[in-house]
């Protein structure tokens, strides 16, 4: 009895193997193990007969590339919408009173220096209750520009949160991130990078 069972199992195992083999093959071959080659299948044998040299007849497919080109519709220079990080309405003198703050590389943490500067900015905002500002987060050029968009946003947010803890209502504080798109110093050295990792505080009203 055991032998039968073992035989059965063996059969199953081999059956399994066989089916695997069969699955691998894309087209099963006529399994003529010993017979001489049968009549060749007509459907096979692509171009085995000496194919006639390609005739110089016109090409079989004719494709006319579509002539359409992208609409030249280039935007006419829009109104210079983007604030040039300064607002002409706000007197330069007032703007000057708002201090920038700076950050370490890949960091949005406020240093003690930054906190001091933010305290002064908060004092200014308390004395000028009509003023609304936009906090602009910026980064240096070294990081990834995509990542820096988020990092700039986080830097702006860090300053906003701190100003709020100092009592400035959040509706007077807008934020925007320019990532690394608006360097204060176009240089490519540590000095420029230090200046560029910053928050600017722009009076918008």
């Amino acid at each position: 009895m055991r032998k039968v069972l073992v035989g059965f199992l063996c059969c199953l195992v081999f059956a399994g193997c066989a089916s695997q083999e069969a699955a691998k093959k894309s087209e099963p071959v006529a399994s003529s193990a010993t017979t001489a080659p049968a009549a060749p299948e007509a459907k096979q044998a692509p171009a085995i007969v000496e194919s006639a040299p390609a005739t110089p007849a016109p090409a079989p497919t004719a494709v006319a590339p579509k002539a359409e080109a992208p609409a030249q519709a280039v935007e006419t220079p829009a109104q210079p919408v983007v604030s040039d990080s300064g607002n002409k309405a706000a007197p330069a003198a007032l703007q000057e009173e708002l201090q920038k703050i700076y950050f370490a590389f890949d960091s949005a943490e406020l240093t003690q220096e930054s906190r001091d500067a933010l305290s002064k900015n908060a004092d200014y905002l308390k004395n000028n209750t009509a003023v609304k500002i936009r906090i602009e987060g910026n980064c240096d050029e070294r990081g990834s520009d995509e990542y820096n968009l988020a990092l700039g946003e986080r830097r702006a947010k860090a300053a906003k949160d701190y100003l709020e803890t100092l009592g400035i209502p959040s509706d007077r504080l807008a934020t925007i991130s320019y990532g690394e798109e608006r360097p204060a110093d176009p240089g490519h050295n540590e000095e420029a990078w230090t200046k560029n990792r910053r928050d600017e505080f722009v009076i918008i009203k």
Partner: peptide, 30 residues
């Protein structure tokens, strides 16, 4: 591939039995 060469010495059958799916290689064999 399996080749059948006819009595005239020409290929009577050329059958790709199995291929790893590399078209360039299949063509090179062809």
């Amino acid at each position: 591939v399996r080749l059948v060469i006819g009595p005239d010495g020409r290929i009577a059958q050329y059958k790709v039995e199995n291929s790893s799916g590399d078209k360039m290689f299949e063509d090179a064999v062809d």
